[in-house]
């Protein structure tokens, strides 16, 4: 049930950034790039989100390479499913918004 609830913007963008393996700072930069600088994740918020999404099995930590202390994360199959469901939900929101006021707001 809880997995049918809407994701927060931070959660959504973190998942999106993890479509390819990334370490923490890489996620912050990727999210900033994707949102054209609008969404800036703070490190404490990101760390908490990574911890709880790893516990839920939406993402996983990749084996740490020898000599590197940077931990990389990647989406799991479950995480991809969550993301696809969320994109559907967002599409519905935008479609309805466009249908009702989109046309009136373009002039």
């Amino acid at each position: 049930m809880a997995e049918l609830l809407a994701l927060t913007e931070s959660t959504y963008y973190i998942l999106l950034a993890l479509y390819r393996p990334q370490h923490g700072y890489g996620i912050m930069q990727e999210v900033e790039r994707l949102s054209s600088g609008r969404v800036r994740l703070a490190a404490g918020t990101l760390y908490g989100a990574l911890t709880s999404m790893t516990e839920k099995g939406w993402i996983q930590m990749l084996p740490v390479e020898e000599g590197s202390r940077k931990k990389e994360y990647k989406l799991t199959d479950k995480g991809i499913k969550i993301l696809v469901t969320e994109i559907e939900r967002l599409r519905e929101l935008v479609k309805n918004g466009d249908m009702i006021i989109g046309g009136d707001n373009n002039g």
């Binding site: 927060t8 931070s10 994740l41 703070a42 490190a43 404490g44 918020t45 908490g48 989100a49």
Partner: peptide, 15 residues
């Protein structure tokens, strides 16, 4: 650049 530990309401409440 700007430096914050929390960037959303949930994590501020958590703290």
């Amino acid at each position: 650049g700007t430096f914050d530990l929390f960037s959303d309401i949930d994590s501020k409440i958590g703290h």
